[in-house]
Design a protein around this nucleic acid. Structure first.
Lengths: 180, 180
DNA sequence: ATTGAAATGAACAGGTCTGTTCACTATCCT
DNA sequence: AGGATAGTGAACAGACCTGTTCATTTCAAT
């Protein structure tokens, strides 16, 4: 069963946005790479912005599910630390181009922009997910883990520091044990 | 004494890049806002890319000098912690739109791109500056502080969490005291 | 007052951008 | 067989993009 055209567009756009950025990726390039006609794109999405939002929406669902699974499986000493194992796997993969939401929030800096506010919402929901896997008396560490995680993403993306997640995990561990 | 045209262009471009991003800011908008003619721009800069690089260069010098001064003045309990006080001041200012270098590295994702590699170089030089203000036996904390700092920048920029630097400072303090 | 450097304004070239429209085709369901 | 659904290809509009060119103006230093 062939992939529906709409999904082909989303997948292609996702890849191109990652490789080249949102503004730098034109509609025509997405169409050429996906082999879909322009009329079809504008039947499924009323604008480029809507396509971007759907790409981010799907990416959010993937990521959220992946993190939740990782923390439930709990291979690390503490469930919340599994976040950094997941990050590490991501950084090692060929398809790591930084965080979509950080980059989208950077390219659309106005907080009232739907793309920016969706990115903010995503980051908030990850923070809340994290706090569900921290004990009652260590809720405040959710913020620390978010800082370390986003910092690691930046280090890996900008500086090419692919071991950033491993380092972040060590520091997160130290914070956990510092206050038991 | 009037500001030279070249500097007017750099200042205007800096503001517009911050407010709207690099791709989203066209040359014509920079010219209109600065009141400089197009011929003059292309006498001082051979391309838009060169203008971006000079904007980043000046920003790097400002930032680096500011951080070095903050750590030398050393109003916090530990010189390296002054980084977070500086970040906090920045986040509170009206002119905070996130880190130029993170956003530039996001909009120009190819590591061989001069804009991306300059951003990487900037982040590395801040990391080295930091390690100069950490004792011999705590050098590894330079990485931790970088992660916390960049994470705080993202939290403030994307999520509007303006107290991110204050939180980051607390966690940095805990890491410092955890290993004395 | 003259010269020379610096900047201007305006037009132009050649692309690229998003988004629209329309006649036509392929496919599946009944 | 007939009709609905989905997609194609191509052309078009109108705006915006970077970068070039050149005749003209401004202005400070000599």
């Amino acid at each position: 069963m062939a992939t529906p055209r709409k999904q082909v567009l989303i997948d292609t756009a996702y890849r191109l946005f990652n490789q080249h950025g949102y503004h730098a990726t034109g509609i025509d390039r997405i169409l050429a790479d996906s082999g879909v006609s322009k009329a079809t794109l504008y039947k499924h999405f009323k604008s480029k912005e809507e396509l971007i939002l759907e790409v981010l929406q799907q990416r959010h669902e993937q990521l959220y599910a992946m993190l939740e699974r990782a923390m439930q499986e709990n291979k690390s000493s503490h469930p919340a630390l599994a976040l950094f194992d997941a990050l590490n796997n991501w950084f090692q993969s060929e398809h790591f181009y930084g965080c979509n939401f950080i980059k989208a929030g950077g390219e659309y800096p106005q907080i009232q922009d739907p793309i920016h506010s969706f990115s903010a919402w995503h980051k908030n929901s990850v923070s809340q997910l994290l706090s569900r896997y921290l004990p009652e008396n260590q809720q405040y560490l959710s913020n620390a883990f978010c800082l370390l995680a986003d910092g690691a993403i930046i280090a890996a993306q900008i500086r090419g520091q692919k071991d950033a997640a491993k380092q972040a995990k060590i520091f997160a561990q130290q914070l956990l044990t510092a206050h038991i």
